[in-house]
Design a protein around this nucleic acid. Structure first.
Lengths: 328, 328
DNA sequence: GTGAAAGCGCTAACAC
DNA sequence: GTGTTAGCGCTTTCAC
């Protein structure tokens, strides 16, 4: 930066100002600085900047796993939005462990990040304390319900379960089953199951159960769960799945067993994954706005970073959408 | 760090040494430092460290998009492996634009990263120059073929196409079609198509074509491509897809059109995605080792970082596996 | 094995 | 609008 300043015949602080508040520098100075940067192919050292400012342009995003299409969507969207403001995304995967999340938060804080993004509202006490003491803006994504550490962007997963149950009931279904995978770890899937059961049991004349499998969601698990369901509850006529991977397995297994969808069995998924609309039959599903969660979370961070913490909004409910297709 | 040193009744440089080379510090000193860290809940400032050392513990990983399950797998694996060594993953998405990749590389370099990971071997000249001048270790992943900037971990995509073609030919198929999506942007898919065509045309008595669609891969595109294929080439009896999303669409569309797989049509995918084994029929596919690419790339980075650049291996061919299932 | 000293490349008051 | 100054919290020789 001193080299740039020397070449532009200005002081280093003016060059620094040029990067941080371009409008505060005169047009003529700006021009000569820009030329000097170009000539020297100067690349600012963000660590020096972050050290001096006691805060970096890094945002730490911690999700269960980016292998999960839901979180991948949000992470990708956030990176695009934050990148526009020259904020760097640092990524961490908890693999659904709060203990691991705590480690990742500790690591993240050693970078003095501009913000920390966490998935869900459930964390260790140490994580919460670490974050509170650090004074770093925190956004919790993909879940609403209890009190957030700071800000939150997401929706209520119980409401998803309720919407699925109501939809099946409206289609005249009486014997409902919720199919879930890995619900011990995936709190949000468990909430969806809860909302589903509660709604079904509060409706008159409906019987509802949950069948689950400890492995992560995929179509093979979905197929197994469907097979188990028809064995245990031969009169089942409505199924909600904890996500579309499970639902895909249900569709395939029904084909193999000769169970017609939606005639004999209605199926509702969750996720609206890339294949859901193209299934045979096309899958009725509930679409969570993974991209909207990303843009809103990025917006909150950017607003928090660029000075004005103007009456900041703490909780944003993004809602979700039920997409009715052929499977129900 | 000075507070820790004071409490441990040692100098700051000993504390610094404790973090960087624990073995060089006496057991008694280690003990009192550990106590002081605990008592003060000291969190090291990695920016100060990086600034002083002129290199950070951040690794920049730049992929087309983490929405793509292939890259998500590798990114997740790398984060886990690098995290063990307390290396932070910084993430960037090019959305298949080399121009955007260049921007991301420029941003990445301002963090003085321990390494930069790029997807594929095709980059702008500026990107290549930026990276060469920076002297930062570079690993290019998911593609082998031309000369890498520094190190590379991946496989030859032409060989994937060749394997798919050979498999179909061995099953007695004569009229082959390769179905591809977004091949203008996705060089690697284009290479697979090339290898497929070349092998088919060099075999005697085989006819082969490519049908493509400009949109990103998904099952809906696969369904459309299959419909177009049977219209243009009614005698088609073997199909290779640029990935399993396309293949899934093919399976569903064949169900709708009453085309039996594998009797009338053999189908080979690419990816072995989470649903592939559970399809009806189960999908024959080629599995790229996304996790292995991640562990190997992480290993190269760690070896490069922790001092000894001992006769480093520059190119690692991870190969791939053809999984024969019911669809062929 | 441990300590003293000199920066690393910036930012942020503050003065002009 | 621009310059001066004093650090930010570490690492890294180099002595001892």
């Amino acid at each position: 930066m001193m080299d740039v300043a020397a070449r532009a015949e200005l002081s280093p602080s003016t060059v620094s100002l040029y990067f941080r508040k371009p409008d505060a520098v005169s047009p003529s100075a700006s021009r000569s600085i820009a030329q000097a940067i170009e000539a020297l192919s100067y690349v600012p050292n963000l660590m020096a900047g972050g050290l001096a400012a006691a805060s970096s342009r890094a945002v730490s995003i911690i999700v269960p796993s980016v292998r999960n299409a839901f979180f991948a969507e949000t992470v990708a969207t956030m990176q695009a939005e934050l990148g526009k403001e020259r904020l760097q995304v640092m990524l961490g995967h908890t693999e659904y462990s709060e203990r691991e999340e705590e480690n990742l938060v500790r690591m993240a804080l050693s970078w003095a990040p501009a913000a920390v993004v966490l998935t869900g509202l459930s964390h260790t006490n140490a994580t919460r304390k670490l974050l509170r003491d650090s004074n770093v803006p925190v956004v919790e994504i993909w879940e609403l319900g209890s009190e957030p550490i700071d800000m939150a962007v997401g929706f209520h997963h119980e409401q998803v379960g309720q919407a699925a149950a109501n939809h099946l009931i409206q289609r005249g279904r009486k014997r409902l089953v919720f199919l879930g995978a890995r619900m011990q770890e995936d709190r949000r899937a468990a909430f969806r199951a809860e909302g589903f059961l509660e709604t079904a049991r509060n409706a008159g004349g409906i019987v509802a159960d949950v069948i689950q499998h400890p492995a992560p969601s995929n179509a093979a698990v979905g197929a197994m769960l469907l097979a188990e369901t028809v064995r245990k509850f031969p009169d089942v006529d409505g199924i909600a799945c904890s996500n579309d991977h499970i639902a895909l397995g249900v569709i395939f297994e029904c084909q193999r067993l000769g169970i017609t969808i939606p005639q004999r069995l209605s199926v509702v998924g969750f996720g609206d994954l890339s294949f859901s609309a193209a299934c045979n039959p096309a899958l009725t599903t509930i679409r969570p706005p993974g991209d909207l969660i990303g843009t809103e979370a990025a917006r909150l961070i950017i607003e928090n970073t660029s000075g004005g913490s103007v009456n900041k909004q703490h909780v944003i409910d993004t809602r979700f959408t039920l997409l009715q297709r052929q499977s129900s």
